[in-house]
């Protein structure tokens, strides 16, 4: 590895000879700081930036990434990423260059923030550029390349601008494709959740609503069915009583040979029969009502579907908790402040 260093110093001396028409003399790009990116991606992007920087022909000599890495390895500094001016000045002196570029690439959810700083090793003055990139990471290389041109205050080459436009279009199409897929998936999930809720409510009224997070409706349907069930039970008791009474009277009526007794038993049997019939009619009506409510509950479970998840910011409520310090239960009210 040390064999490269003499060539590097020769390269710097040679570059000083032709130092007339370029704004910067010697320059080095330090490995960028990164967040949310792998080491390989980070190194690749730093390298891409360096390559593009060379193409700007703004410096007489730019130290290649291999050499920077080798020197940093030699000094056992390769593990430390430079993030401030003093560090940059120190490394610049080590590398023997006039200017050093440090940078950071931060990946947030769907966008990247890229910031580069050109630091004078002698004075510590900083010229900084920042770029935001939204889209697929594939296009990030182009963005980094453009930033190199931008930092050197040079007009970006046409092919890079076109490539950026292509990447943007590609990213847009990809985003649209993903959005369509996400919408399809959301629809599928919604349909599945609705069917699940419907099946649950078919088995047990209100179950689907409970499972979908609509507890109020769940209690409503369950309560209504229970009330109807209670009414049905009471009516059935009346029916059963009349039924059994008739079963008792009718054989006596048939067996009786006394005219008066026959007349009394017949009158009683007719009365009980009317009661039985009335109870049956009522039971039938209640059963229809119960069935209608049940069906309505099933339809409601399907139509209303899953309740959208409440965001943390909207959450508030009461909790009954046990306080171990006081050794007693406590009622807590909580509200999100963000």
């Amino acid at each position: 590895m040390k064999s490269l260093l003499p060539f590097f110093y020769l390269f710097l001396i040679f570059s000083n000879i032709n130092a007339q028409d370029k704004p910067y003399n010697t320059m080095a790009v330090l490995v960028f700081e990164s967040e949310g990116l792998g080491e390989l991606d980070r190194d690749s992007l730093t390298n891409k930036f360096t390559v593009e920087l060379k193409k700007t022909q703004s410096a007489r000599a730019i130290v290649s990434q291999e050499v920077v890495k080798e020197i940093m390895d030699e000094r056992r500094l390769s593990d430390e990423v430079c993030t401030n001016e003093s560090c940059a000045m120190e490394r610049g002196k080590l590398l023997g260059v006039d200017h050093v570029i440090i940078g950071s690439i931060i990946k947030s959810q769907n966008w990247f923030s890229i910031e580069v700083e050109l630091i004078s090793v002698d004075t510590g003055s900083v010229d900084s550029r920042k770029s935001f990139y939204t889209g697929d990471p594939i296009g990030l290389g182009v963005e980094v390349g453009l930033l190199a041109w931008n930092l050197m205050n040079k007009i970006s080459p046409k092919h890079l601008v076109e490539e950026k436009a292509d990447k943007e279009l590609e990213a847009k199409l990809l985003a649209e494709q993903r959005a369509a897929e996400a919408a399809r998936e959301a629809r599928r999930r919604l349909r599945k959740a609705k069917l699940g809720a419907m099946l649950r409510s078919t088995v047990f009224p209100g179950w689907g609503q409970f499972k979908s997070g609509r507890k109020g409706w769940g209690w409503f349907w369950l309560g209504t069915e229970l009330a109807i069930g209670g009414a049905a039970y009471m009516t059935f008791t009346e029916y059963d009583k009349a039924y059994n009474e008739f079963e008792e009277i009718y054989p006596n009526y048939n067996a009786s040979t006394d005219h008066e007794e026959i007349a009394v038993l017949k009158a009683r049997a007719i009365k009980v029969l009317d009661e039985e019939s009335a109870a049956n009619d009522q039971l039938l009506m209640i059963a229809y009502a119960g069935g209608a409510v049940w069906v309505a509950n099933i339809i409601h479970a399907y139509v209303s579907g899953q309740i959208p998840e409440q965001s943390a910011a909207n959450k508030s409520g009461f909790h009954l908790v046990y306080n171990p310090e006081l050794k007693s239960p406590q009622l807590r009210f909580y509200i999100a402040l963000d």
Partner: peptide
């Protein structure tokens, strides 16, 4: 729900 109870003929 449609099935009702048995009724005596009388």
């Amino acid at each position: 729900f449609v099935i009702s109870c048995e009724l005596h003929e009388g």
